[in-house]
Amino acid sequence: MSAIDPDVAGQLAADLPRDDFVRILRTFEDDLGRLAVELDRCVAAGNLDGYRRAAHSLAGAAAAVGARRLEAVARIAMDHRRTEDPRSLAAQVRQEASSALAELSALAEHPPGSA
């Protein structure tokens, strides 16, 4: 299973000029890196409110570009009713973020429909 939903990415690529599509992907890459670091910092500090805020932001950003697996893990992390260990979820977020970033980088280099 792909880290990025090809339907979402394909629709973005179809709806936007190539430069805008690439800019959105690059912005997401930057945001994802920043938010993943923030999530890790909050876990290390035992800051559950900050951890959930970072997870919420990650879920929203992931949804916007079709990073469905990352979005799913981030939604679990942001849910205060869940009992999963934040360290374990942060590791899953890093893994899914890494996969999503690799695919986003490839998409930015070769957007759907580019020659």
Rank of each mutant, 00 (worst) to 15 (best):
E96V: 02
A97E: 05
E71V: 01
R94M: 09
V8R: 11
P86N: 09
L89S: 00
A100C: 10
V73Y: 03
V8G: 05
A61I: 00
R82Q: 10
Q92L: 14
R81D: 14
A67M: 01
R53K: 13
E71L: 05
V73M: 00
G46H: 07
Y51F: 14
T27S: 14
A9S: 15
D5R: 03
V43M: 07
E84I: 01
L32T: 08
A108M: 10
C42H: 14
A62Y: 00
D15P: 10
S88G: 15
S114C: 05
S105N: 12
A44N: 11
A100V: 07
D7W: 06
L39W: 03
T83I: 09
S88R: 15
L16S: 09
R41W: 10
A54L: 05
G113T: 10
A115T: 07
A97P: 02
S2T: 06
A90F: 01
L25G: 15
G113N: 08
R68A: 13
R68C: 05
R23Y: 06
E38V: 13
E71K: 11
A67H: 02
S105E: 13
A72R: 10
G50F: 05
V37C: 07
F28W: 09
E71S: 07
S98T: 14
V43C: 05
E71A: 08
H110W: 12
I4N: 06
R18M: 13
A72H: 13
G60N: 04
R18T: 14
A108P: 10
Q92M: 11
L16I: 12
L107E: 11
R41M: 13
A59H: 06
L39D: 01
V43H: 00
P17W: 08
D20I: 15
A59L: 05
R75W: 01
R41S: 14
I76M: 04
L16G: 08
D85C: 04
D49T: 13
A97I: 03
D49P: 03
G10A: 13
D7P: 02
P111D: 05
L25Y: 10
V43L: 01
V37E: 15
R81S: 15
R52H: 06
P17H: 12
P6S: 10
D40G: 10
L104G: 15
G60F: 00
R34F: 09
P6V: 06
L48Y: 02
A61K: 02
S105M: 08
A63D: 06
R52V: 03
H110L: 12
A13I: 07
E29L: 14
P112K: 12
A77L: 03
P112D: 09
E103K: 11
S99Y: 08
I76W: 01
A63Q: 08
A14C: 11
D40M: 09
A97S: 13
A77M: 04
S98H: 09
P86K: 02
E109A: 15
A100H: 04
R82Y: 00
A100S: 14
A59P: 00
I76T: 11
M1S: 09
A90P: 00
H80C: 07
D19Q: 12
A97V: 03
